Simulated scan of single mutants.
Amino acid sequence: MQETRLDTARIRAARRVIDPIFLDTPLYRCEALEPALGCTVSIKLETANPVRSFKARGTEVVANLLADSGSRAAVCASAGNLGQALAWSGRGRGIDVTVVASRFATVTKLDRIRALGARLELVDGDHEMARERAAAIAQYDGIRLVEDSLDIETCEGAATIGLELMETAPAFDTVLIALGGGALATGVGHVVKTLAPEAEVICIQPLGAPAMTHSWRQRRVVTTDSTNTIADGVAGRYPIPAVLSDLLLVADDAVLVQESSIIAGMRLLLTHAGLVVEPSAALGIAAILEDPDRFAGRHVVTIVCGSNVDVDAYHRWVGAAPIHRS
Score class of each variant (00 low, 15 high):
D68Y: 07
V107S: 15
I152Q: 12
A159D: 09
R72L: 13
G162S: 09
G94C: 06
A178W: 00
E132Q: 14
G92N: 10
G142R: 07
T194I: 10
T106D: 13
N81E: 05
C203R: 00
L110I: 07
A136Q: 15
P206R: 07
E200L: 01
V123A: 07
I95M: 09
D141S: 08
S78T: 10
L66H: 10
G142N: 02
V100G: 06
L120M: 08
R144P: 00
S71W: 04
D151V: 11
A135G: 09
G80S: 05
V97E: 06
R144C: 04
E164R: 07
V123Y: 10
I95T: 03
V97C: 05
A199P: 06
Q84H: 13
S149F: 11
A79K: 04
L150P: 00
A134R: 11
E128F: 00
V201C: 05
A101S: 14
V192T: 14
T108R: 15
S149R: 00
E164D: 14
H127T: 02
D68E: 15
L110W: 06
L120C: 14
L82A: 13
V146K: 13
K109I: 11
G182L: 02
A185V: 01
I143A: 01
E200Q: 13
I202R: 03
L122E: 07
L110P: 08
C203F: 03
M129L: 10
C203N: 00
E153C: 12
G90S: 09
G94R: 09
V191Y: 03
V192P: 02
G94F: 02
P170L: 03
E156I: 05
R119D: 12
L110N: 01
I161M: 11
A159N: 01
I143R: 03
G181H: 11
S89D: 11
I152D: 12
L110C: 09
Q139L: 15
A105C: 04
D173A: 03
V100N: 12
G94T: 05
V146E: 14
C203A: 12
T168Y: 12
L163Q: 06
A171P: 10
H127G: 01
L82K: 04
H127F: 15
A169E: 09
Q84A: 01
L65D: 15
D141L: 13
G162V: 01
L150H: 15
L195T: 04
